[in-house]
Design a protein around this nucleic acid. Structure first.
Lengths: 232, 232
DNA sequence: GTCTATATGTCGATAGAC
DNA sequence: GTCTATCGACATATAGAC
């Protein structure tokens, strides 16, 4: 029956937009008050629903957090994208690195959300329970998982270009991981333990990159500060 | 009156040992079930108290978490200490770095505890609201705060030795911060986002150190694996 | 002084009425 | 499809028993 199909489609559309509405309100609460302050009741109030209704669109608070994390990751990638256009590999790497740290420090709650998905309970950090990708043969809804590693690849590609040019003295996949760890660590230390991070993240990243790939500017020149930093 | 003084001392001693008893039980719960599972009720049950009694010794859950974090930090330092004896600066740096990562990955809950003290609510990361310590004029228990930066200095000192020897080409305080960020980031990515950390932390750290200070082993030699790793 | 009993208000989640 | 009512667990505060 055509009418049945139409109804199904309408329901799906409504469900999708409802999910967006909920995520939107949740995002606003998290950015304003932090993730800890996100409760199902407050969220329901914000969109004029009863708390129970939220469970029609999400399995629970965890699924909402996960969706927010994915959303935040897309924002991070979008924030990095412009800097990936830079032609010179060395400049590009610097710009990407600083843009990454600037995003993390400028959007603490969003950044936290991205990296809080999945902790191992009870000591053993068992595999992150490989979720079944794609329910059937379907090409998998838009933004389903948004290939996780694509941010990593952004750095890895630039790195390989750079190390190849300067004589391939290192495993560039490992170095890309190390760079990512440095950026992530710098952000986390700045956000969570200001007492451990005695220096601003910007100069620290510069020092790391310079020690890895040589100073960017001509020797003797003052340290350039044209890269993005602290965008809050 | 002598008896009064004695009574005061006795009370203080009891309070101290009670705090230790509580912290001990809390530590056991956290290591076994993770920090999220630590509730005042469960903790009270574990030591045979009523929940309210805990508030006689601690201001609340947050203060317990903070105390556990300090305790964990001391464990981390104690874990690193043996490796600080190594005479050769380069070897020492490698050993310290790997020991650090091994501790973090081997004791996830403890490591989390160390770095979860103080998050900024609502975006602004205001000062950690200096709480009034010490019930009276007491010199405030031993191990008050155990100078936070002493772990950083451990790395900074070794680093300065190393960079000085090899021609001081970098700001070694900044490099120490960068190294610490790399280690912290490697641990955090491994613990929280196994999907982002595509490589094991050990080789990543090796790659970072090699790119910073040159390969440790003689050129052409197989990558040595005598440093500690994955101690869980 | 030390601890328990109890009360208040929060939370996530669910069952069932409309 | 949405809401009301409610459950069980939680942090915390207070009053008073021993």
């Amino acid at each position: 029956m055509a009418t049945t199909e139409r109804k199904i489609r309408e329901t799906q559309a409504r469900t999708l937009s409802q999910r967006e509405r909920i995520l939107d309100a949740a995002s606003r609460i998290v950015v304003r008050e932090g993730f800890a302050a996100l409760s199902m009741r407050k969220l329901a109030d914000a969109i004029g629903y009863s708390p129970a209704s939220l469970y029609l669109y999400f399995e629970g608070r965890d699924e909402i957090a996960e969706a927010l994390g994915r959303e935040g990751y897309m924002q991070l990638l979008a924030h990095l994208e412009p800097y990936a256009q830079e032609a010179d590999a060395r400049e590009r790497l610097h710009a990407l690195a600083h843009a990454y740290v600037a995003f993390g420090c400028g959007h603490p709650q969003t950044y936290e959300l991205i990296f809080m998905a999945r902790k191992g309970r009870s000591g053993q950090v068992g595999p992150p329970e490989r979720r079944a990708r794609g329910t059937a043969g379907v090409p998998d809804a838009p933004h389903e998982h948004a290939d996780d590693a694509c941010g990593v690849q952004l750095f890895a590609a630039t790195l390989s270009e750079l190390t190849l040019a300067s004589g391939a003295r290192a495993d560039c996949a490992l170095l890309a991981q190390a760079l990512l760890a440095t950026l992530h660590g710098a952000v986390m230390l700045t956000l969570a333990r200001a007492d451990f991070a005695t220096a601003a993240p910007g100069p620290v990243i510069d020092a790391a990159l310079d020690a890895w790939f040589g100073t960017r500017a001509a020797p003797g020149a003052p340290r350039a500060a044209k890269t993005p930093d602290a965008t809050p």
